[in-house]
């Protein structure tokens, strides 16, 4: 049995998202042209939460959507074909917008690379930024996040699991110790 411990509890996640929402507003000077695109499954949920926060703070409703990256993954051939996630763009699309990609965990950076490829086929944003709840390091590509909820030093053998109320019935980020490897 591997042991696990919660590194973020519900209030911590709440505060981290609040801060990221403020940072997005600050960095984009009021989030006028911002579109939040979450990477399914949990990134899409986080994007919706961030959108709600921004609306609370500034009264502006920013478009929120999701972009599935399954068809753009570089490791498709390592496993049987996976079911697809849901892609949903805001009605006005992403052309000329500042897209903030939202994901739960930033690790190798390969998911983000796939998302950038997907965006390329979906339109031409003026800029793309990245928000992530947890940055656990071990990047394999030259990618970094613009907004980070928590920097979490991990060993490669460990696993980071994110639980969100809407999907899992509770909010938590759990670090699972890896077995002997």
């Amino acid at each position: 049995m591997s042991d696990s411990r919660a590194v973020l509890e519900a209030p911590d996640i709440h505060r981290a998202l609040t801060r990221i929402a403020h940072e997005i507003l600050e960095r984009t000077k009021g989030a006028d042209d911002v579109v939040l695109l979450g990477i399914p499954t949990r990134g899409a949920t986080l994007a919706r939460r961030l959108g709600d926060r921004v609306e609370q703070f500034e009264g502006v409703k920013i478009p929120v959507g999701s972009v599935d990256i399954t068809m753009y993954r570089d490791d498709l051939r390592l496993r049987p074909a996976r079911p697809l996630g849901h892609t949903e763009l805001p009605p006005d699309g992403i052309d000329g917008k500042v897209v903030v990609l939202v994901d739960d965990v930033l690790y190798s950076g390969r998911t983000v690379r796939a998302a950038l490829d997907a965006l390329n086929d979906l339109g031409r944003p003026t800029a793309v930024q990245l928000a992530t709840l947890v940055d656990r390091g071990h990047r394999e590509l030259p990618i970094r996040a613009d907004y980070v909820g928590k920097n979490l030093p991990t060993a490669k053998s460990e696993k980071v699991k994110v639980y969100l109320q809407e999907i899992d019935g509770r909010d938590a980020v759990v670090l699972v110790k890896g077995g002997a490897r």
């Binding site: 068809m71 753009y72 498709l76 079911p83 697809l84 996630g85 892609t87 490829d117 086929d121 979906l122």
Partner: peptide
């Protein structure tokens, strides 16, 4: 059927291609 449901949007966008 569910996979097709997600792929249907590809036919509606300007770049109707996936690299898969």
């Amino acid at each position: 059927l569910d996979t097709a449901e997600e792929l249907a949007s590809v036919s509606e966008r300007s770049i109707k291609k996936l690299p898969t």
